[in-house]
Amino acid sequence: MTEKAESRPRPDSEVMVEIIDLHKWFGEFHVLKGINLKVNKQERIVICGPSGSGKSTLIRCINRLEEHQRGRIIVDGIELTNNIKNIEKIRSEVGMVFQHFNLFPHLTVLDNLTLGPIWVRKVPRKEAEETAMYYLEKVHIAEQAHKYPGQLSGGQQQRVAIARSLCMSPKVMLFDEPTSALDPEMIKEVLDVMIELAQEGMTMIVVTHEMGFARSVAHRVLFMDGGQVVEENTPEEFFNNPQHERTKLFLSQILH
């Protein structure tokens, strides 16, 4: 069902996100225990693992929705520190798609998309709206531009959320379980959009349990458990020949 990982265009060797020995605690709880990860430009990483393994926390650290206590995170050459200007800069370069969409319910779909470009990038409204319409076309939802998020289905809302991130022309996109809150029949429409995005060479870090998606687009699959990366491999190796007992158990549970 999938092309071989080796035959996919090799990601640029330029490093987009670099995480070095990352530690994070929630109070006393040690949630990330020394994560090392290097994501190259145009590379697509899928992170999976049981709940509580720290995978969401890891990608939320990348745009500082969570603060790390030890180690370094470098995004596109800028290191994340307490410098608020750096944080805002990185956030505007990093797109984030949430499990619960988090669209702004008081704004129309179009206004949701233009908010960032207009206020952060200082793009003129007209131009921002053109860009927004372009991306709405891309996620196949242009006809809903003037509705409010509350009037859309979950799948449609998630596609709007993806378009909202794309409007900022991000250098890397983070997906935090983008299909977990969706009804089964809507998962496909969101995954299709993400696959199209992948084919265009977007750098993506995706936390998901959609193993079909991992097989077909990922360059690497990371399996996390207990705040550590237990196994990291190409999709073929990962699914066909898992090395660790914990990974085998997880896969057997998830791939009935």
Partner: peptide, 15 residues
């Protein structure tokens, strides 16, 4: 999530 969505677009506190 509303704060997080706004922040992840790069909006500052005031915006």
């Amino acid at each position: 999530g509303q704060y997080e969505a706004a922040e992840s677009l790069g909006l500052n506190y005031y915006l």
